[in-house]
Design a protein around this nucleic acid. Sequence first.
DNA 1: TCAAAAGTGTTATCCTTACACCCATGT
DNA 2: ACATGGGTGTAAGGATAACACTTTTGA
Lengths: 335, 335
Amino acid sequence: MHKAVSQPIGIDLTAAVTALVDGSPAILTVPARDLSFEACALPSGPFAPLRHRTLELGLRGFVEDQTGFRLGYIEQLYTFGDRGRHATAPSSAPHVMSIGYLALTRDDDESDKTDDEAPWSWQNWYRFFPWEDWRSGRPAILDEAIMPALNAWLDSDAGDEPPGRSLSRASRVALAFGDGSDEGGSAWDEERVLERYELIYEAGLAQEASRDGRSAHKGLVEASIGQPMVLDHRRILATAIARLRGKMKYRPVVFELMPQSFTLTGLQSAVEAIAGRRLHKQNFRRLVDKAGLVEPTGSTTQATGGRPAALYRFRYDVVAERPSAGLRFGQPVVR
Amino acid sequence: MHKAVSQPIGIDLTAAVTALVDGSPAILTVPARDLSFEACALPSGPFAPLRHRTLELGLRGFVEDQTGFRLGYIEQLYTFGDRGRHATAPSSAPHVMSIGYLALTRDDDESDKTDDEAPWSWQNWYRFFPWEDWRSGRPAILDEAIMPALNAWLDSDAGDEPPGRSLSRASRVALAFGDGSDEGGSAWDEERVLERYELIYEAGLAQEASRDGRSAHKGLVEASIGQPMVLDHRRILATAIARLRGKMKYRPVVFELMPQSFTLTGLQSAVEAIAGRRLHKQNFRRLVDKAGLVEPTGSTTQATGGRPAALYRFRYDVVAERPSAGLRFGQPVVR
DNA sequence: TCAAAAGTGTTATCCTTACACCCATGT
DNA sequence: ACATGGGTGTAAGGATAACACTTTTGA
């Protein structure tokens, strides 16, 4: 019924590779590739069906070529293919779609760093999303820059709402960023990373927006909130963070990021770093205990200062029984 | 750094369009397109970046062209692109990837059925996945055909397990299909639709497997459990069902399938039809009540027999406040 | 002796599950 | 009257959120 492909299409496989580096969630980046624009990029490359039997194998190949990292856990996120979602080459060039992936590794493997002057580097997540880290309280950038700018955007664009039954912009902002009120409205939900980034992009607060030719809305100076990335890589990273924050709660994926043995406080810090908020210590411990995902190794460490901490290891065997077990941590501790 | 695309790539957009037809969850199908093999197919077509500004618009176009249906809710599911995932044309032809989508509609719109002898039809989900419908108890096909065949497969292939730390086949079967025991092991989880289908496919119990050239494992007659579909469309449908079953619990998506006004029992039947299991009536009602997603219209219907039932409507306004609200139904009623 | 971090016990509250029972209509 | 499906109240058990407190080390 259909045969020909009218315009050539290219597929880019793009990986958001995360590890914990010095207790911070970090993303593996390579220098910007083909734009005059100076920015980080995620490792990526074109999918060549003749060379790569599966999409995942292709992705593993690229990351290993570009950074030397062997990936463990991999999960497909989303396929981005809309025209005009980022500035691109002239229309004669093939239309490039990107399939985004989330991948997890450990950084402790020193054997990876073969080259000196490596072309890749780890970047803290929160350089790109400074509003997402609530571990030391509500980030100042929200009240100082983001919310005022978003409100100005809402006011100025009050007329030209998108039609249909979709949410109004004001509702979307209220939902994504919480409306401050502790009751009735909605609170901050750490999983809405993508919704927040999309609003910031649409409002012209991300440098990517002006670069992509979206006119900054009237009366707003060209802003840059958070470090930009190449193409739509920041959107892919937002998707990856959102997915990991959600998945962590019902699948034992954090352990992909932890070393062989760890303390319970270390595990909690890891979860907190990813979720971007602090948790209640005692409840976290009971949770871990009840989940039965972890067992003591018998030894302790004094590296943490203070009383020596018992070391634990992940029980790989329980995955076979109940991979649905995750760390369904609940409410943040109020502060 | 990279430029050329070595082998032409085509993108197929494929839609799993679901509606409730006479209380059953149904999937919109079109006759098989280009294979001698006689089977249903999902509506789909090639993505042409010049014609379609976005992937979603392309999809809406195809479905409307092929069936006349205007889609409401749409959600991207997954991109399938592995070589050899289904029988395909000679290798000179372009490599076709498919992006699967879940879409929801209502069937009550009679205006859609313009043509008589329409080229499309609604098919009950459970024709393709007879083992997924537990509403009248555990499906007989599990004990009569599936479990024996899977166990035979496990026995015969005990030697050549895949390497690495991935789950053993036996564990995957136990997890996906439950191991009968009510404690210790895992019970039936209605969301694991895809895992179950993949195992059935790998074990050679799906007709698609033999069609794709996978040798049925030794000692097993070529079987066909559940009605097959074209290409990997059954896999896409499995993904769609799994996603809908999950999403329903934390987003108010069921209402996309309900008529304007409905009874609470009607709503419960819809949820049960999708989830493939029965729910506890009183608890379901309290749940709906507490969620606040619904309000009485004031009128009643006697169409159900027995005492007249109050009619309700979905509160579209709450979506703006709390779109996270879904129907987090809990345990099935024991029977 | 004090700071720092690990680790424990206990209670109020809410949500889930399950039980049994009443109500309004058609036949 | 009785069958059928609609609709309600309430108690037991478990999970969650929050409280304050003890233990073990290094400096």
